[in-house]
Amino acid sequence: MEFNETQAIYLQIADYMCEQVLLEKWKQEDRIPSVRDLAVQLEVNPNTVMRTYEYLQQYEIIYNKRGIGYFVAAGALKKIKQMKKERFMANELPQFFRNIYLLDLELDELKTHYEKFKKSNFK
């Protein structure tokens, strides 16, 4: 995983984990990698992964079964979508709208490109 310097690593790992749920690679009640296994996989310190797991537990996206491991919580998909939508609307959409305005793009043109994107990336 390539990390960028604009966001804390534990939050980037949380985004990665949420994406696994959104793409349904990890379904609700599925066991997820242990802290150590994910740390090795992502080549980060286990303390960083632990911080990620604590963060996701606060939002009830994952939960811990003591002695067994971590699991995707029931309703995690809905919670992730809501959290990501709120973040997108607050942080990214205003700049996106600004670019549409400045470039004088029409919504029909964007829709065509969006449909092509979906077909080529999410078959």
Rank of each mutant, 00 (worst) to 15 (best):
M1A: 00
E2G: 05
F3Q: 01
E5R: 14
E5P: 05
T6H: 15
Q7G: 06
A8E: 07
A8M: 12
I9V: 01
L11K: 14
I13M: 08
A14C: 01
D15K: 11
Y16V: 06
C18L: 02
Q20V: 12
Q20P: 09
L23T: 14
L23E: 10
L23G: 11
W26S: 06
W26C: 03
W26H: 12
D30M: 07
D30E: 02
R31D: 00
R31Y: 00
R31K: 10
P33Y: 12
S34K: 05
V35T: 08
D37P: 05
L38T: 05
L38G: 04
L42K: 14
V44R: 15
N45L: 09
T48R: 04
T48V: 06
M50H: 14
M50I: 06
T52G: 04
E54T: 15
E54F: 14
E54V: 15
Y55P: 00
L56W: 14
L56F: 13
Y59D: 10
Y59K: 15
Y59A: 12
I61L: 05
I61Y: 03
I62K: 07
I62Y: 03
I62L: 04
Y63P: 02
I68E: 02
I68D: 03
G69Y: 07
Y70E: 08
Y70K: 12
Y70R: 15
F71T: 05
V72S: 07
A74V: 15
G75S: 01
G75I: 01
L77Q: 04
L77V: 12
K79F: 03
K79E: 00
K79A: 01
K81S: 05
K84C: 08
M89A: 02
N91E: 14
N91Q: 15
L93F: 08
P94Q: 10
P94N: 09
Q95R: 13
F96H: 08
F96L: 08
F97V: 15
R98T: 11
N99R: 15
N99Q: 13
L103E: 13
L103V: 11
D104V: 15
D104Y: 13
L105G: 10
L107W: 13
D108S: 11
D108G: 04
K111L: 14
T112D: 01
H113S: 10
K116W: 10
K119M: 11
